[in-house]
Structure formats: C-alpha cells, structure tokens
Amino acid sequence: MSISLNDRASAHVERMIADAERLRIGVARGSLGETLVDCGAKVLGGIDAGLALAETCLGGLGHVTLGPAEALPRWPWTISVRTSNPATACLASQYAGWALSDKEGGSGFFALGSGPARALARREEVFHDLAHREESARAVLVLEAGSPPPASVIAKVAGDCGIAPDALSVLYAPTRSLAGTVQIIARVVEVALHKAHALGYRVERIVDAAGAAPMSPPHPDFVTAMGRTNDAIIYGGRVHLFVTGPEAEAKELAAGLPSRTSRDYGAPFAEVFKRFKGDFYAIDAMLFSPALVTVTAMETGASFHAGELSAALVDASFGG
C-alpha cells in the first residue's frame, strides 16, 4: 500500500486545529517544537473531539460516527466504526502497542502510544506480520494520557520515527474525558483484528470491517472509567468482518473471536482488574474482543455468527 498513514492523519490534525474552538481542544507547541493537541485533559473537549481523535488514530483510513441504535435500549447512543483497510488502519495505526516512559527524566510519565507514528517506528512484533510499509516526513502519535509527554519521550519518538521533533504531532486525552471515552470505544474493530492476529489468522484476508459499541458515560475515577470503556466492547460490542479464503476458516474465526471465549468473561472489567490486583497483563488477553461477531466468507457468501450481547453486564458497568 502506497498510502501514508501519517500524511493522512496529519491532514486530520490540521483540520482539528483549524476547528479547535468548536471542538473545545487546546493546541500548543512543546519545548522541542512538537505540536501538542489536548483533547480532554485541561480542556473540555467532548464527543466531537473524540470522534476526530479516533479517525486520526485510524490513520485517516476509517470512519467513526455517533448515532442511535436499539441493541441496548438503556444505552441507545452507539459509536460506529468502519474501514476498508482493516489490518492497516487498526493494527498498523490504531492499536495501542507502543509503551512509552520517561526512564531517564524521572517524571514518572508512562503511556501506551497509538496512531500512525507506530508504523514509522515499527518497534512492535505485530509489524513483522503486516504488509504495510510507511514513509513520511511527519508523524502523529495518540496517547491515552492526562498530560503531554516530557521532552525525553518526544525526542525518543521522533528519533525512532526518523523525523525532526517539530514534525511530530501528539494528541492526548485521559480515559475519564468524553473524548478519551469515545476514542477508546472506537477500538471495537481493532480489538477484533488484534484477537484474530493472536489466533493466528492472516489479518490481510480481512478486507473490510464494521463495528459498533455503546457510548459509555465517563467517570472521574480511572479504574471505573477504564472498566466502562472496556465493557462497552467486551459486553456490548459487535463486529462484522468480511474475509477472503476458505469458508471453513471464516467459520473457525467467528467461533474464536467473541469475548465469551475468555476465562475471565462474566464480570465487569473493573472487578476483573481489582481481582488481579491491578496487574493489567495478568488478565486473559482473549477477553479484549467484541461480544458479538459476524464473519462473512466473501467467496461463498456464507456468514457465521458467534457470541452475544449482555445488557445486564453493560448496565452493571455503566451504573444504570
């Protein structure tokens, strides 16, 4: 693919900056000349900021919208995502797989990086299995964080991406914010792609994808907010994947994808997190997937369904 994720995402960032007042976002220059876009930390931000942030995180290769749906009557507002380049948009860009910390500066900063800057740095194993090769003189990084990264992290990111620091844009929003809530729930398709990859499926064979999950109410407590955004996908998310290849493999993929295949399925995520004493990596990775999945085999037209929505667990998590 000759498409540059970072060039497309940079165009999104420029539009966000031009519309900063309406989006209620803050724009600043960092000490190394980087562009910093606060979508919900020290500014109000909001749903529109989150939708724009999510599309930027997809490298400009996806559409994210908010609209009504009847799947969960008590939570009718649903975040919908679609992309015709699922492996590239979701795994090469949106997936939060780049661990960034300020080891030298001692500030205590830590965040998982997502967005198309990852495709330039290629620091994660997942890139060994992706066909996309990124070229760009600028980079866009998205962080689930309540503050911008310190200069040491900016320098590392720019160096790993092979760009000047003043060609780097960093967008950030904490989980507790509306924008942060939206951009996390907008990962409903991405988690399906990531789980498919973990199951050994060739993700380039997923040629189109659409998904949706309920908009959860934000919460000022980090663990509660994190739990709600995860539960929106785990118990309320639904995804439709269109794949090439044998019908039998499409059926097998559908059976393996839903969150209910995980040993830790069945309780709100905040409870699971506390059960493992806050050790995120002790939680079964297979839990991070949509509740309901449909996989269509393009060559035969057969569709396979697996999983189910759980209104009771969504209600328990969302507090309603």
Rank of each mutant, 00 (worst) to 15 (best):
M1L: 12
S2Q: 11
I3H: 14
S4C: 09
N6L: 10
A9F: 03
H12L: 10
E14K: 14
A18H: 05
R22A: 11
L23R: 03
I25Y: 02
V27D: 02
V27M: 04
R29A: 09
S31A: 15
S31G: 11
E34V: 06
C39S: 04
G46D: 00
A52V: 02
E55I: 06
L61Q: 13
L61T: 10
H63A: 12
P68G: 11
E70R: 10
L72P: 00
R74W: 14
P76S: 06
T78S: 09
S80G: 14
S80H: 15
T88D: 11
A89Q: 04
Q94I: 01
A96T: 12
W98F: 05
K103Y: 09
P116G: 10
E125H: 08
E125G: 04
L130K: 05
A131P: 07
H132T: 07
R133H: 14
E134I: 10
A137W: 06
R138C: 13
A139N: 12
L141A: 08
E144K: 08
A145W: 05
S147C: 15
P148R: 09
P149E: 01
K156M: 13
V157Y: 09
G159Y: 05
D160V: 08
G162M: 07
I163M: 11
P165L: 09
V170Q: 09
R176T: 15
L178E: 15
V189K: 08
H197Q: 11
H197R: 11
Y201Q: 00
R202G: 12
D208G: 13
P214D: 02
P217C: 00
P220W: 02
P220Q: 11
D221H: 03
T224V: 13
A232E: 02
A232S: 15
R238T: 07
R238K: 14
V243G: 00
E247D: 12
L253K: 00
G256F: 01
L257D: 02
P258M: 09
S259C: 12
R260F: 14
A270R: 15
F273Q: 14
R275T: 10
D279T: 07
F280T: 15
Y281S: 12
A282P: 09
D284Q: 09
A285M: 13
P290W: 03
L292I: 04
T296M: 02
A302E: 13
S303A: 15
H305C: 11
E308P: 07
L309S: 00
S310Y: 02
L313N: 04
F318L: 06
